[in-house]
């Protein structure tokens, strides 16, 4: 295989990954890692480098649209980024001492967890009473719905912050956005409306990924020949996905994709256990 053919196939694959990531809500970066390692037999470290770049592109592109709609809670995102960037730098540090097979196994586990998170029941709660800290930190807000502006308040800030720290570590270690964990922290612990959770999580992914990506770039994980087809492909796929989402509600599709991705995750775990990485 020459470089031209490899690049074109990878571009097409990354496009599909971006599309899948967008339709399932998992993010294209997550889907591109198994594609690179299992299909193209690329070392997982190069895959992580490229996936981080794809996550930044994806998150930044989508975030600009959500901010415009006024759904993203920018203060909350900023505050929680203390936790995620701290975690991400820590995770990128631990990564040096972690065997690649362990990383692959961990990746598989997180992928299955993320798939489960996207198909679970969503709560559109909006608390009327927030915790003391939510007032001190000015984290309460409101968001637009078809029925008008809905105010919401936050609780359990400490719990949410701790989960964000873990999300950051996993993001730095595995090279993914770990959007699912971020949503768990905001939706599950702090009881933020689901729409605000997902958009604010997406807003944070870019900064979190950048914090560890600068470490990975300096370590030589980012290969130009892999990076350009992956970034352009994932970005294109995500763009198509976002368009498709406005005209259809891919509920059934989401279930099918999440099951498929869980099988891929199992293969990552299996290969990791058999030291294939």
């Amino acid at each position: 295989m020459n470089i031209l053919i490899f690049s074109l196939i990878l571009l097409a694959g990354a496009y599909v990954a971006g599309l899948l990531g967008s339709l399932t809500g998992l993010g294209g970066g997550v889907v591109v890692i198994p594609l690179l390692t299992l299909v193209f037999h690329v070392d997982i470290r190069y895959a992580i480098g490229a996936a981080l770049l794809a996550s930044i592109a994806n998150s930044s592109g989508a975030a600009s649209a959500y901010i415009k709609e006024g759904i993203t809670n920018v203060r909350l995102g900023m505050f929680l980024e203390i936790a995620t960037t701290l975690g991400a730098v820590g995770g990128a540090l631990i990564a040096v001492f972690t065997p690649t097979n362990t990383i692959a196994i961990l990746f598989g586990v997180v992928l299955i967890f993320s798939a489960l998170m996207t198909v679970r029941k969503k709560h559109e709660h909006a608390l009327q009473e927030g915790s003391r800290l939510s007032y001190v930190l000015k984290l309460n807000g409101s968001y637009p719905t078809p029925q008008g502006e809905v105010p919401y308040k936050l609780q359990n800030i400490g719990g949410g912050f701790s989960i964000m720290l873990l999300a950051g570590v996993l993001s730095g270690l595995l090279g993914i956005g770990s959007g699912a964990l971020k949503v768990l922290a905001m939706d599950g612990a702090m009881k933020i409306p689901f729409k605000v959770s997902t958009t604010t999580s997406n807003f944070m992914i870019g900064v979190t990924a950048a914090a560890s990506a600068v470490v990975y770039l300096q370590r030589g994980y980012i290969d130009p020949g892999i990076a350009f087809p992956v970034v352009l492909g994932v970005l294109g796929g995500a763009f198509t996905g976002a368009r498709l989402l406005t005209v259809m509600n891919p509920k059934t599709l989401r279930y099918i994709f999440c099951v498929a991705i869980s099988f891929v995750a199992l293969e990552m775990i299996y290969n990791g256990l058999h030291h294939q990485f």
Binding site: I56, V214, V231
Partner: peptide, 9 residues
Amino acid sequence: GALILLATP
């Protein structure tokens, strides 16, 4: 290009 992407966030 990757550097610009990193610098964006």
